[in-house]
Design a protein around this nucleic acid. Structure first.
Length: 811
DNA sequence: GAGTTTGAAACT
DNA sequence: CAGTTTCAAACTC
């Protein structure tokens, strides 16, 4: 298996991670001319295509590597030329991110837009600048541990501070602006970025319409392709128009210059929304290929600024490109391929483009719907203008038990995993682009850089891109209410790259039915023909561990459900809830090198991650061995990577073990039994002896009851803990002001360690007395309680006295 | 945590 | 295909 040379490897991340280039963007044209900041444009790696995955100065689609990546967007330009988002308009940007990403924004002057990278998904940072409001202090947006923290820190320390932070949502006030950010990470916690407007002016007038304020500049963040000036198509209201002397500044995020001749494709930057924001196990598979910057103006439908340039086409037309495929978080997931026609102009209507691809027993459905997972970004400020919902792209309704990513590819492609040492990207070498099916939707040439509320389009030319991990991503900036001037930038990107050309990978031939869960179909280069390259999902699962984080408004995530559903498909017959609630157990393999089906990780098509295994080969560093092992397993059993729990025969239970168990001693009532473990009953195909795992089995019923009771207890305990914790927090919150204000201390604050010890001694002494006097237990308890009451009274009395003393001396 | 039990996977 | 061995998880103490 070919491995990308270290040189190339070094290039790729550098380009992506290069923050130097972004920083100190020359503001040579502060007067409003679009300025492109393409620091590394010339250094684009020829092997990379401009896929939806973000690449470039700002890595919006980072890989899932655990290491932190810090990216800084610095706009040192004057207030009038900084990367700003116009007030009254919204720029939803959903950005795929890497784990523990840091994004430092150094808005030196006027406004700034922050792009945050987080572990799970990319989120758009919404920065609202109202007219003359300026961000004078740099602030850092960091996302770690699935949370995005905005810290107002010194620019030089922004990164470090951001690293240290990242645990709690924070509210940042800066110059009257408030950023409320919560994060959606793996944990599924919603990330809310809210920038209430404190300014007096309505959002629209503040930036765009306000003649007093400097002409607002729009910096277009180009996730893919070379950056270029994107005139903002202006329209009524606060639309950004070139006529308004607005400055459009393009920040090249992905500096890959598409070499393809295909018509440029526009991507709408969408936001990956986690449907279940509160679910810690939520996997938002960030996959999006779309890159579009959308703006919501109160008066007009949200405008979409196309930041990306033709990227997919380059993949097709340029052999030798490699695709970095985002990892799948869990096997049994279905990667939804969002394919939308870029030509869609309907800004207000949801676009549903179901694409069902039968893959053996699996169906891959692609849907785009605006209603699926809308992300709302709202500011507290209200404007008189009505906001039209930004067209959201939702991918949902995926049926299937396995997570597969389908990337349009030429037929009969050869897919090869390419490991780039030190790179957190996983590359797939695609070979043999040939004629293909008509599944791909031809995308018309991108005619304008700005699109109005267009659905996310991932397709290029005739090729569709399916990116793993991305659940429904929807930008729904539906603000029926008066809008805010806050600009929301949401960017969702895929982590895919195409690195071509590829050499044939003989050992792995696409097999839709037998590949391990999480199979990824990679798009193959090809002129207009669509095919599918199949890449075993396990190759990408490791990266998947750190999905993107999406910033969303605090207003909720109505659409998150679709994402959740999509991201969490039943695994081995387990319900979605089960799979989502249970993180995969780390394996403990010692002899199998995690390359045999003994290893659960391997069997599930996942890389080992945080496991306790020894001599593990189930990782990127041993892709060759791993591929070989996979092939061996498949040779031995083509069904090896298929879920063992499937649908039963007619009239039988919906779920049953595909092969049946062979238990002899456990009675099929222990987790040794695969049927029992899967919480299903043994079926006729089981060859077990002494089976007690059937419907009427009393033993089974007893076990079920016990298990249920245990579960109830656990839930009760958890609820009690949560409640208690909440109460304590609430109490502390209420008492804190009193304490801090110096108004006095509550009695409980006098319960110091010494007081506590003394109280305990009193109680013990009372117990001793009762024991010595041979008091009955009830009486002893009464005495002890009495003594405890006395102690409490003394404490309260002391507290009151201290408070009185304090008041007497005006303390 | 160490040792045992268990059954699937791997091997012959 | 059957029997045996290997292996890692489940289980017990």
């Amino acid at each position: 298996m070919d491995v990308v040379s270290p040189e190339l490897n070094s290039l790729l991340p550098d380009e992506i991670m290069d923050t130097e280039a972004i920083e100190d963007i020359p503001q040579s044209q502060p007067d409003g001319n679009a300025v492109q900041s393409e620091p590394g444009d010339d250094t684009s790696v020829p092997m990379e295509t401009d896929t939806p995955a973000a690449s470039g100065n700002v890595n919006l689609c980072p890989d899932a590597a655990p290491t932190e990546q810090t990216q800084t967007l610095t706009t040192s330009a004057p207030a009038d030329s900084t990367f700003s988002i116009s007030t009254g308009s919204q720029l939803p940007i959903s950005i795929s991110s890497v784990p523990s990403p840091l994004l430092t924004l150094k808005p030196s002057m006027a406004t700034s837009t922050a792009t945050t990278r987080t572990t799970d998904s990319v989120t758009g940072t919404t920065v609202t600048t109202s007219g003359l409001q300026k961000l004078t202090a740099p602030f850092t947006i960091s996302a770690a541990n699935h949370q995005i923290i905005l810290n107002k820190v010194a620019s030089s320390q922004a990164t470090e501070a951001a690293k240290s932070a990242a645990s709690q949502p924070q509210v940042i006030k800066q110059d009257g602006q408030k950023l409320l950010v919560t994060a959606i990470g793996k944990s599924g916690q919603p990330i809310v970025l809210q920038l209430p407007h404190t300014g007096n002016k309505p959002g629209v007038s503040q930036t765009v319409g306000d003649s007093k304020s400097p002409a607002p500049q729009f910096k277009v963040v180009t996730i893919g392709g070379r950056s270029e000036l994107k005139p903002v198509a202006g329209s009524a209201g606060n639309q950004v128009t070139t006529l308004q002397a607005q400055q459009l500044k393009t920040v090249q995020i992905a500096k890959k210059t598409p070499t393809s001749s295909a018509a440029p494709i526009k991507f709408i930057i969408t936001k990956t929304v986690n449907s279940k924001g509160l679910s810690p196990q939520t996997t938002v598979s960030p996959v999006i290929a779309g890159r579009v910057l959308t703006q919501n103006s109160p008066v007009m439908p949200p405008r979409t600024i196309t930041l990306s340039e033709p990227h997919n086409t380059s993949i097709q037309s340029i052999p030798g490109k490699k695709i970095a495929i985002s990892p799948l978080k869990t096997p049994s997931k279905v990667t939804v391929v969002s394919v939308a026609s870029p030509t869609s102009n309907a800004s207000q209507k949801s676009v549903t483009l179901p694409v069902n691809v039968a893959l053996g027993q699996q169906i891959l459905t692609v849907q785009q719907s605006t209603s699926a997972s809308p992300v709302k970004v709202a500011t507290s400020q209200t404007t008189t203008q009505n906001i039209k919902p930004v067209q959201s792209v939702a991918v949902g309704g995926v049926g299937g038990s396995q997570f597969k990513t389908i990337i349009p590819l030429a037929t009969q492609p050869n897919v090869q995993q390419i490991q780039v040492p030190g790179s957190r990207f996983h590359y797939v070498r695609l070979v043999t682009a040939t004629t293909a099916s008509s599944t791909g939707q031809p995308s018309g040439p991108s005619t304008s850089s700005i699109q109005t509320a267009k659905p996310m389009v991932v397709s290029t030319g005739a090729v569709r891109m399916s990116v793993p991990i991305v659940p429904a991503q929807t930008i729904k900036q539906v603000a029926p209410k008066p809008l805010t001037s806050a600009a929301v930038v949401t960017t969702t990107q895929t982590q895919q790259r195409l690195i071509m050309p590829a050499t044939p990978l003989p050992q792995i031939q696409p097999n839709f039915t037998n590949l391990p869960p999480g199979t990824v179909l990679a798009p193959a280069p090809g002129g207009g023909n669509v095919g599918y390259a199949v890449v075993p999902a396990q190759y990408v699962t490791q990266l998947q561990q750190s999905p993107f984080v999406t910033l969303a408004s605090s207003s909720g995530f109505p659409a998150s459900t679709a994402i959740q559903t999509q991201a969490r498909l039943p695994l081995n017959g387990l319900s979605t809830a089960e799979t989502t609630s249970r993180p995969r157990k780390p394996c403990n393999c010692t002899k199998s090198q995690c390359l045999k089906l003994y290893c659960d990780c391997f069997a599930n098509g996942e890389f080992c991650n945080n496991c306790n295994c020894n001599n593990c080969f189930n990782n990127l560093e041993h892709e060759t061995e791993r591929l070989k092992a996979i092939k061996t397993c498949l040779d031995r059993n083509p069904e090896a990577f298929k879920p063992k729990i499937g649908k039963g025969k007619e009239g039988e239970s919906d779920r049953r073990h595909s092969k049946g168990c062979n238990c002899k001693r456990s009675g099929c009532l222990k987790n040794y039994c695969e049927c029992y473990e899967a919480k299903i009953m043994c079926s006729s195909i089981c060859k077990c002896i002494g089976c007690k795992n059937f419907e009427e089995s009393p033993e089974r019923k007893t076990l079920m009851h016990l298990a249920d009771a245990a579960e109830v207890r656990v839930q009760q305990q958890t609820a009690a803990k949560t409640k208690l914790s909440s109460q304590i927090s609430d109490l502390l919150m209420r008492t804190a002001p009193v304490i801090s204000s110096g108004g006095g201390r509550l009695p409980y604050t006098f319960v110091t360690k010494e007081v506590l010890e003394a109280t305990c001694e009193c109680l013990l002494e009372q117990a001793k007395k009762a024991e010595q006097t041979h008091q009955p237990q009830a009486e002893a308890e009464r005495l002890i309680l009495e003594e405890f009451g006395h102690c409490l009274m003394r404490i309260i009395s002391s507290a009151g006295k201290a408070k009185a003393d304090c008041a007497s001396i005006n303390c």
